[in-house]
Design a protein around this nucleic acid. Structure first.
Lengths: 334, 334
DNA sequence: TTGTAAGCGTTATCAC
DNA sequence: GTGATAACGCTTACAA
């Protein structure tokens, strides 16, 4: 490996001067600069980032922990994070937590001893009790539900309000028996419980009595949506709308409805949540909630960089909620 | 930041002993080990990875450059790469090239490259002429088309053969006017030209004369597929099958056909390529070619690690082609 | 079984 | 404008 001092020797200057040239410092004569760049090119020199990191005490890399990168939702998030990181001069190392609590805890625990300057973690399983798991001496931003009780910076989306908007939209279109795919009223607070709560509140406000059999618990995955439709119709439960708590789920539900010969939006209206790119291209295209991903990612970076510059152990936790918006498409238009 | 020597002082031993304990070396008495681990826990010590990297001359990180992580194809690939990397003790830093030649060259050339032990790059724009762009003293595996003329390790998929299989499948089902979405016979060799060539060869072999107007050039993106259908039908071109050169494109084509009131597989048969997860859940589900992604990723790692262990400048370039398989689903079943 | 010394490649400081 | 020196935190040899 070609080192800086080899370049220095070849150019007849000191290593320090080579460093100055590389880092674009002023006070280097054009003549010297030329000699050095020539030597760099000739020898094929590259800076050793490990050494630079050691000196600088930082790596220019942030970690991104997501449940599963091949979920469209995560992939789009990762795309935004990588792009935003690039704009701010950072690189992104991606880890997958497998949507398990263990995986998320692991990502938090490992992050400090990995080479990251900070970590953005998309939490889906961590709850209130896990607040102590978050490092206090290392910049972490949680992208997901609020981790109560800890000074954890976090960015969330308007789960309750978005679900309310969807519900009102469906009720306005005459739906009275809205099946909620992924719906759940118990268990750790998260996207599922918050969106369900938003739905139920809006339903009651509209004077529609919620029915237990219309809460269809299932995981947020395409295959689960298809299976859940099979099960629900198999059980003879009638419904005039399928409110899916994520778009991925909705894709599976569309599939499941097609399997049963039910048309959308003819027989059943269908909605999603997240506004993944695919939502505009399904057949029919999908009414959904755009949770303001771009703004969320920008906010996450603002928080992370603020901690990087002033890594206070104390300090109030920051919060941000994305600006959501109902996007109406064919699946609820008849 | 707590350093190793602070731990050593606290435990009443030398830094070397702390290092030995951390790295699980033998010849450390249980008593010493206990004292050291206690001190590590009490002080909250973490190894400084930058320093370790500097010493070791490697980082344990490999780079992954993909066109655009939020393309399902790339996302699934990234998921496999990250998982495989984890299994082999590596982390993955993801970069996006934006599917541009400049982006790909940049990923190869950047001095950031130096913080990776190796690079896996999914090339879509680099061609024969770019072989010299590939570093010779740094492990790189190209995932994509063959870069002729250079000693570039690469993993490719059976583009020609897979497209041939799809074509034969369609011809067997009676199709004679197969529109090829994304089809292209000229320009830099790549997935588009290779798959088109495979299609044309199989078509001729089956005694069907290719028609120029059925080659529908468009980029491999969902929105492009929908637009291309609009254009083709608008131009009054009739076709009984839509062979899409990627699944993402097929999703858009399904959408475009629905917009025109054409049913699948009733009026038109549709096929894709790549077998992304979504392909089983579109309505109708999509006949496609599974290119053996898992095997491709495993092969890419084998090549990369082989170069890491024996980074010869010379040495024959390695090659691997994924085991492809036609997956027949509803979109071609009637 | 443990400690000492040296150096990995870079850059901040400060002198020249 | 340029260069000598001294770290950054860790681990490989070798010595004890």
């Amino acid at each position: 490996m070609v080192t800086m001092s080899e370049v220095a020797k070849a150019a007849g200057v000191s290593a320090m001067t080579v460093s100055n040239v590389i880092n674009g410092h002023p006070y280097v004569s054009d003549e010297t600069r030329l000699k050095v760049t020539e030597a760099i090119g000739r020898l094929g020199y590259r800076v050793n980032v490990a050494a630079r990191n050691l000196r600088a005490g930082s790596t220019g890399v942030i970690g991104l922990a997501v449940p599963d990168i091949d979920q469209p939702y995560c992939a789009e998030l990762a795309g935004l994070v990588i792009a935003e990181a690039g704009r701010r001069g950072y690189q992104v190392a991606v880890e997958q937590t497998g949507a398990s609590r263990e995986g998320e805890i692991n990502a938090l625990a490992q992050s400090r001893l990995r080479m990251y300057d900070g970590l953005i973690i998309s939490t889906v399983r961590l709850g209130d009790a896990d607040a102590p798991t978050f490092p206090t001496d290392f910049p972490v931003v949680a992208l997901g539900e609020r981790i109560h009780g800890g000074a954890v910076d976090h960015v969330s989306m308007a789960n309750f309000e978005g679900a309310g908007d969807v519900t009102r939209h469906l009720v306005e279109r005459g739906c009275r028996r809205i099946a909620v795919f992924g719906g759940r009223t118990h268990g750790e607070e998260g996207a599922a419980t918050l969106r369900t709560a938003g739905h139920l509140a809006a339903l009651r406000e509209a004077g529609v009595e919620p029915r237990d059999e219309l809460l269809v618990p299932c995981v947020f995955a395409t295959e689960a949506g298809a299976a859940a439709v099979r099960q629900l119709t198999g059980a003879g439960v009638a419904f005039d709308a399928a409110m899916c708590l994520t778009d991925s789920l909705a894709v599976g539900v569309l599939r499941g409805l097609a399997d049963r010969g039910l048309t959308v939006p003819g027989d059943v209206l269908v909605t999603g949540f997240d506004d993944i790119g695919l939502a505009a291209y399904t057949v029919p295209s999908l009414t959904t909630v755009a949770p303001g991903h771009t703004e969320m990612v920008a906010a996450a970076f603002d928080m992370l960089l603020a901690r990087l510059l002033a890594p206070r152990r104390e300090g109030r936790a920051r919060e941000f909620t994305g600006p959501h918006r109902l996007v109406v498409r064919e699946s609820t238009t008849r």
